[in-house]
Design a protein around this nucleic acid. Structure first.
Lengths: 231, 231
DNA sequence: AAATAAAACTGATCTATATCATACTTATTG
DNA sequence: CAATAAGTATGATATAGATCAGTTTTATTT
């Protein structure tokens, strides 16, 4: 029997769905009138776990990490490229804080939408709400997969996952400039920075990837994929 | 500064919210007319990851585990006591399969609600949809916490978590008969069965718990809590 | 362009936890 | 109520991967 998913999973959340398509002209106008556009530099925090969630965040440009604050280490839940919403999970009755933090990997542009407006739209437009549910659940699949990988795969598998993932879902290329440090990769894969470096070296030595500076090129896609699958 | 959540987290999903409160008489009637009640024996499968998700499952009696199928090991996402819905995350556009499997720990009674009816209700009743979003997000918090624990805490902390969690959120007592085997605890904490046994022994030797057969009694709650926090 | 800081890298060491092998106990079944 | 299976327990061994302590390279600042 073939496996039923999750094993070969990735880290990048990139929804194909936009909730906003389901909004009417007048509803869109309400959002337009209640949003603020903010620019962030690389490395800045755009929301902080535990702080008051006054806005839903739409990432219109850039690349961010969404992570849980922890002691001593953080845990990155997902990488989010532009076009996605951040902070949806903070919407539930009895809660008014962010469940996670987010910080930029690159210079980014963000639209802040008043959370009460957003909640109101959900409670008035069921089609919109259904889209929000879709987005949340798509996201859940991702997190589950990631959860499985971090608790079951070992280092080589996890790092292969991330590299393939970045190539396929962020850069759409087998060759790209990595905006993440080795330490970022470590947080992302739940391994130590040193281990990231060592495993990268293994991949290089085995001719699976080439690196120079920030540039990474996946040469042997087949093999990387196998490593990702085997764990 | 104090930590911002997640560190002291537990495994049991036990929503205080019922989506159904938001349904009208006639909508409730639609559900009544389109649901089927099914009994399960201890240890049986009530849904299977990857199979066609034709129903949303309401657990009216019993205790189940919700888990990801994996090779060689499964990963339990949550334990769900009666009164909760199972299968909500399978609701998103482009998907028609269960994202996880569920199996009973004890004899259980389940109500199967046609998924299309459920989707229809979401798309027609925005208040209901908002409740579904709340439930999904409450659940997300749980999973995030669990995710953090399994990747950051070590064995003693993880097992302490689970035991406290069972006591507080399932049995509402510091003394209870455990319906889970050591192997179940192992799946739940992401540790080997042998390690579960050893750590249980440590807890016993240190006078934190007492066990005899299936019965477990948490004697030193304070200390167990500290172990859970320290990791 | 020199000075400083931050990443990247390397090797040696250590440890938490899995794995294996085996014994014992409690359930389940014919 | 034997017989068989499933679950619990324990000790010995192995290892993946973290941690520590450095060095080198690349960025950033003055």
């Amino acid at each position: 029997m073939h496996n039923t998913g999750y094993t070969n999973t990735c880290t990048v959340y990139n929804s194909k769905l936009s909730c906003f398509e389901e909004l009417t002209e007048s509803e869109l106008k309400i959002i337009e009138e209640n949003k603020v556009i903010v620019n962030y530099r690389k490395g800045e925090n755009i929301c902080k776990q535990g702080s008051f969630a006054s806005h839903i965040i739409y990432l219109s440009e850039g690349l961010v990490k969404v992570y849980l604050e922890g002691n001593p280490k953080n845990l990155i839940l997902k990488i989010s490229p532009s076009g996605n919403l951040i902070g949806l999970p903070s919407i539930y009755e009895g809660n008014n804080v962010f469940l996670y933090s987010a910080a930029t990997y690159t210079d980014s542009v963000v639209e802040l939408i008043d959370i009460n407006i957003f909640k109101q739209l959900i409670q008035e437009n069921a089609k919109f709400a259904y889209r929000v549910i879709s987005v949340l659940n798509e996201h859940a699949v991702q997190i589950y997969g990631r959860f499985y990988c971090l608790t079951n795969k070992q280092l080589h598998g996890r790092l292969a996952d991330i590299l393939l993932c970045l190539a396929q879902r962020i850069f759409y290329e087998m060759e790209f400039d990595l905006p993440l440090s080795r330490n970022d990769l470590a947080e992302l894969t739940g391994m130590s920075t040193e281990s990231v470096i060592r495993v990268m070296k293994d991949f290089k030595d085995d001719g699976l990837i080439e690196t120079s500076g920030k540039a990474i090129k996946i040469i042997n896609y087949e093999m990387m994929n196998r490593i990702s699958e085997v764990g």
